[in-house]
């Protein structure tokens, strides 16, 4: 592990930081209206939107087309590259297989498509899972790509998520790189002793690594805690930077779920 001391700089002048912080695996730094919205506003809008999508009847195909268009507009406003969003959507594949197989096994009535007998109910259910799942993944990816992990946690704290959970999450993100490096060093150490994992017979060695990793992580946790106590930690973390939320932020973000509610209501009425 090489530590590049040139890259460690103290940025005390501005809040505006370029590049990636801890836990920002999916974060894509851009300047856009979506990036600028406070994190909690985006989380509430995204969760609200997804629940409305899930509540929409599957037979209203046009409604899902509109939802998808809305998310494409959001992705466009966020200046994200579509290939990147598509690549992250691959996470959905096991469920795509689950959905695609459904029409072949579903019950009657069956309809003929290209000479293959398919279940009508199965087709609709498969469409529903694919449509809702896809819109859900695009929403999650857009949220993750436009929100820094640090901002997300501050935002969640502002909407009354218990402080202990926020602190655990903060430590998790803060130390994930440290623990990953620990893991990498252990891998190098194993391999320099001539080890390569080829099968079940090597699980014991890997489990020993996992055990050692736990002990290292736990002991690091103890050390960090003691160091924090020495600096006056009493269970609360004072944050000097508080994101400011104005009503305009809410108005912009809530356009998405409010439009979706209108679409869902029309879908139910016209069904």
């Amino acid at each position: 592990m090489i530590i590049d001391s040139q890259r460690i700089t103290l940025d005390t002048k501005s809040e505006h930081v370029h590049g990636h912080g801890v836990g920002d695996h999916l974060y894509v730094h851009k300047h856009s209206i979506v990036h600028d919205l406070p994190a909690q506003v985006k989380v509430v809008a995204a969760i609200g939107f997804i629940f409305i999508v899930v509540l929409t009847p599957v037979h209203a195909v046009w409604a899902f087309a509109l939802y998808l268009t809305m998310m494409f507009i959001v992705v466009g406003l966020a200046k994200l590259h579509f290939p990147l969003v598509l690549r992250r959507m691959l996470i959905e594949i096991p469920f795509v297989i689950f959905a695609v197989l459904m029409p072949f096994f579903g019950s009657a009535p069956r309809i003929e498509v290209l000479g293959i007998s398919l279940s009508e109910a199965g087709l609709w259910a498969a469409f529903g899972i694919l449509a809702k799942g896809t819109i859900g993944v695009i929403t999650s990816v857009t949220l993750a790509a436009t929100t820094r992990a640090r901002d997300l946690l501050q935002g969640l704290e502002a909407i009354r998520v218990p402080a202990v959970l926020i602190q655990i999450a903060t430590f998790m993100l803060r130390y994930s790189a440290v623990v990953t490096n620990d893991l990498a060093r252990m891998k190098v150490a194993r391999e320099s002793r001539g080890f390569s994992a080829t099968g079940i017979k090597h699980w014991k060695v890997l489990a020993h690594s996992a055990g050692a990793l736990f002990i290292r992580s736990y002991e690091r946790g103890e050390r960090v805690h003691l160091a924090m106590l020495a600096r006056g930690y009493n269970g609360t973390i004072i944050d000097l930077y508080k994101p400011i939320v104005v009503r305009r932020d809410w108005l912009i973000a809530l356009v998405l779920p409010v439009l979706a509610i209108a679409i869902m209501m029309i879908a139910w009425v016209t069904l």
Binding site: V164, Q167, T180, Y218
Partner: peptide
Amino acid sequence: SKGTLDSQTAPLAGLVAVFIFAF
């Protein structure tokens, strides 16, 4: 968890979370 770990919960639980995440 408040009774068992007091304010220790956060740093320790955070590192256990990293461990489970890696697991």
